[in-house]
């Protein structure tokens, strides 16, 4: 069965992509590096971060490359003044309001490439009290003075031995919500609550995870692009200053707990498992696991 091809123009060059491909696919095919934050191959594009926007001839506004399908004859610019401006501003707006220090190297690269200077919006506001951002009433905020740039900074949430939630780092990319919902786990323990700048990822009434629908599959963690969701083991290592990715080896194996055949990637540092992920491109799991595969490895490390 041969797939139909669609021809479009990117930065003046013709690119043929298969029908149904997005502009992002086309850009990648052509080797045009396109920044993304809320996009992930194994999740439904939510196109909320807007960092992947490109200029499409005939469109009044820029369009998100990650979700816009290529149509015959489209003419796309990926590095025009408008595109560069939007990407720069999106990165600045995020970095001025969110702690991006644990974002991937790739994201740090985007910041440099677009010369993002988040500090020009002012000194970041200090963290709010625990629970403050979880209890703000929709439609009302305290007027700012303009002296400080408002941020989402707040205390980290550590409630169990599985993972930590540091929403000071959350860019609201919705990936964790999608992974918890119909894109993977179908558990629906978390959703976006509140509105506008006060929107946040939350369980119902901000109830603790162990009282929520959460089944601790941990599928939300590897999809998080900024380290807001993190394995407790990794968090503890980072706190202790012993986290060292250079010393980590990643070995692919198969989970032992049932007959599905989920592939595990064991991240091992000093003969200790420090993180368990699953390959996104493997069609048994598409990157997703359950609590046993993700966390049930402790027994091989009880060496006494």
């Amino acid at each position: 069965m041969s797939e139909r091809l669609v021809e479009i123009e990117i930065d003046g060059d013709t690119v043929s992509v298969t029908e149904g491909a997005t502009l992002l696919d086309a850009c990648r095919q052509k080797g045009v590096e396109t920044p993304t934050l809320c996009y992930l191959e194994n999740l439904t594009p939510i196109n909320a971060c807007r960092v992947c926007v490109v200029e499409l001839e005939g469109s009044r506004i820029l369009v998100p490359a990650c979700s816009r399908q290529a149509e015959p004859g489209m003419k796309v610019k990926t590095d025009s003044e408008r595109v560069r401006h939007s990407r720069k501003l999106v990165l600045e707006l995020l970095a001025s309001s969110v702690d991006m220090s644990l974002a991937t190297d790739e994201v740090q690269g985007f910041m440099e490439r677009y010369d993002a200077k988040p500090e020009r919006f002012g000194t970041p506001a200090p963290p709010t009290e625990a629970g403050d951002r979880d209890s703000r009433h929709t439609g009302h905020h305290h007027a700012p003075t303009g002296e400080l740039a408002e941020t989402v900074a707040q205390p980290i949430k550590i409630h169990d031995e599985m993972y930590v939630r540091d929403y000071s780092r959350c860019i609201l990319c919705y990936k964790c919500v999608e992974a918890c919902g119909t894109d993977a786990q179908n558990t629906f323990a978390i959703a976006v609550a509140g509105r506008g700048f006060d929107a946040r990822i939350s369980t119902e009434f901000d109830t603790l995870l162990d009282n929520s629908a959460c089944v601790y599959c941990g599928n939300c963690i590897p999809v998080c692009p900024t380290g807001a969701l993190m394995f407790k083991v990794e968090h503890d290592h980072r706190e202790a200053g012993t986290w060292d990715e250079a010393k980590q080896a990643v070995t692919r194996t198969v989970c032992s707990y049932c007959g599905v055949g989920c592939n595990l990637e064991l991240h091992v540092q000093d003969n200790e498992i420090v993180r368990v992920t699953s390959p996104q491109d493997h069609d048994v799991t598409n990157g997703h696991l359950c609590i046993k595969g993700r966390f049930g490895w402790q027994f091989v490390q009880n060496r006494d």
Binding site: N47, V90, S96, S97, G196
Partner: peptide
């Protein structure tokens, strides 16, 4: 606009604050 932004996309969610 800061109050009424839905908060979904970055330019509006943070832009209205700035």
């Amino acid at each position: 606009f800061r109050d009424e932004s839905c908060g979904q996309c970055v330019p509006c969610r943070v832009g209205t604050v700035r």
